[in-house]
């Protein structure tokens, strides 16, 4: 089967969405498909120009393939008779972010017509797709609420599961991923004082120097500099995997995130329990208190309690980690299954 993956391009930016795109193409080929990906440059300011962005997408033409898998607005508007959407996200500034007052679309008559145009174009794209998948339940709920379309959840799997076989705990709690205010690694640093003997490793790129500075300052204030390792940079994949494989448990507590999070999946793949918070969003779709990790209120005290429990009972931690891995496997969060669904 010949497959084209379509997405958008913001030149010189390479993040999670781009990784997913690359791995989708790679895994399509691994599963025996002839696959290629193409990404259309996308520029969303000023909002008026969104009309041109959608107009151009509607007038591109794809041929020479059997199926198109489209990932993002407005690339998913490119017409094709056999099109599957794997919605990572819509143009949220026309929907939930608009409601939250965080949109670049003006609130005047001109903005009204832009919104109307986006909704009309979205409806066309959704209607002409043979199947819509979303990366997380919340994305699907938004799609239903704002656009009235049904979808199925298809979570992006781990790109390199073979790097996370797990291993013996070396007794530290690990926090990976981007470091910033929303990811709230600072809560963990604050919590550490309450759990004597436990070590914390934070390894991941800070969004800005200020984000790194905050963690250093709190570690000093809390007097836990000797028990905290702050490796704040783009950690090479192999090293990151090593850190995960040797952790006691992984803490991932973003504020209201859509998806499970790669950090969560890496942890469970390596059979490590996950500590998260009640307001973390999509993480809670898989992490269950007491079964494969701990779900606590987002306070240093509550987090300290969770960390202490793992620290005090490492065997239990190991069991919960294995339960986490089983939960991932039960959901078949792997690339071959994902590809199978996308090309069926």
């Amino acid at each position: 089967m010949k497959v084209l993956v379509l997405s958008t391009l913001v030149p010189f930016v390479h993040g999670g969405a781009e990784e997913l795109y690359d791995h989708l193409v790679l895994n399509l080929r691994r599963q025996g498909m002839e696959a290629e990906g193409m990404r259309i440059p996308f520029y969303w300011n000023p909002a008026e120009e969104l009309i041109e962005e959608m107009l151009l997408a509607r007038n591109l033409r794809v041929s020479g393939v059997d199926r198109v898998i489209a990932l993002k607005f407005p690339a998913y508007m490119v017409p094709f008779p056999d099109k599957v959407l794997w919605l990572l996200h819509q143009y949220r500034q026309a929907y939930d972010l608009l409601d939250a007052g965080q949109s670049n679309i003006p609130g005047d008559a001109s903005g009204e017509r832009i919104l109307h145009a986006i909704r009309a174009a979205d409806a066309m794209a959704f209607r002409e797709s043979r199947q819509i998948y979303t990366n997380a339940p919340i994305t699907g709920r938004r799609l239903k609420h704002y656009n009235g379309f049904d979808s199925q959840v298809l979570r992006p799997p781990l790109n390199d599961p073979e790097l996370f076989p797990g291993g013996e705990s070396e007794g530290y709690i690990l926090a990976t991923g981007r470091v910033n205010d929303t990811k709230r690694q600072h809560l963990l640093v604050r919590a550490l004082r309450r759990v004597p003997g436990l070590r914390l490793v934070v390894a991941g790129p800070p969004d800005s120097p200020a984000d790194a500075e905050v963690l250093h300052r709190i570690a000093a204030q809390e007097g836990v500099e000797d028990r905290v390792t702050l490796d704040l940079r783009f950690v090479p994949r192999a090293h990151l995997a090593q850190l995960v494989n040797g952790a006691l448990g992984v803490a991932y507590l973003p504020f209201d995130e859509d998806s499970l999070g790669y950090c969560t999946m890496e942890a469970f793949r390596a059979a490590k329990p996950v500590i998260t918070t009640t307001d973390s969003g999509g993480v809670l779709d898989i992490v269950r208190e007491g079964e494969n990790g701990h779900v606590v209120p987002p306070s240093p005290e509550a987090l300290a309690g969770a960390m202490a429990r793992l620290h005090a009972a490492p065997a239990r931690a190991r069991d919960m980690g294995l339960a986490g891995r089983a939960a991932m496997e039960a959901q078949r969060l792997d690339w071959p299954t994902t590809i199978e669904r996308l090309v069926s």
Binding site: I51, M54, L55, R58, N59, R113, H116, A117, A120, A121, M124
Partner: peptide, 11 residues
Amino acid sequence: RIASTLAGFGL
């Protein structure tokens, strides 16, 4: 073709 796309957007 272009005009009909835009008309489809309600413009």
